[in-house]
Amino acid sequence: MINLLYFLSRYGGLLTFVLLELLSVYLVVRYNQTQRDIYLNSSRYYSGILLEKTTQLRHYASMAEVADSLSKENATLYNRLYSQLAITPRDAEVDSLLSPFEFIPARVIKNSINQPNNNLTLNKGELDGVQAGMGVVLSKGVLGIVRNTSPHFCRVLSLLNSQTFISAAIRRNNAFGVIHWDGLSPNVVVLEEIPKHLDIQVGDTVVTSGHSSVFPPGLEIGRVTNYYIPSGSNSFRIDVELFVDLSRINRAYIIRNRYWDELQSLETTESK
């Protein structure tokens, strides 16, 4: 201790200076409102610049991947478009009846997969025609359901959320049930309520059933990896592995049903 004091008094001028000066500046920033505001604002300004640059860099680094997925999505859309043109009768009125679904492209600006109840934010809102209750899909998979909207953004109840229930079917035999997430793995969801007398095989493709106005029928969701009948139950419990890694998505499509308002008002009058 004595030695330490001796050392400080002999050579500690610079050390004492640096420590006390830092302490002073800390006091200035901590206890003076004006200086505190200036400090916070300028540090936010500089950290903002830094964050913006790193984000730009990251976006640039993932550009090739984004372009790939975009071209794939384009291809899927073209396929869908042409297959529909092929079956469209010449009558134009019937055409719009055949395909009541309209796709609104959107960018994912916030995403989570590690919460028990996950939500997303997309960059399309009321001004783009988005309303609560609409479905959100990916080029190969289902993302969730719009929960609420603001003029420019919407919050989406992710498929990985205990409140999300989506009607789905096995493509091979049209056996349909309900998909929800058990909160365990972010790329496995559970398909339930398929009666146990039906035939299920590992590797079957699960698609949207079309028994709702939210999703068009036939959108691919995932593949059956495992199934069993819980004791005392009349239906299968099927593990479905998703086709898309939900942690790596950046673009999605919000589905608008052209007859949304009509269907809503019809269904509400019925329930009264």
Binding site: E21, L23, S24, L27, V28, V29, R30, Y31
Partner: peptide, 15 residues
């Protein structure tokens, strides 16, 4: 009522 201002200046000028 300016915590740190005069302390910082005094420290600096003493150094």
């Amino acid at each position: 009522d300016t915590p740190g201002v005069h302390a910082g200046a005094s420290t600096f000028s003493a150094f």
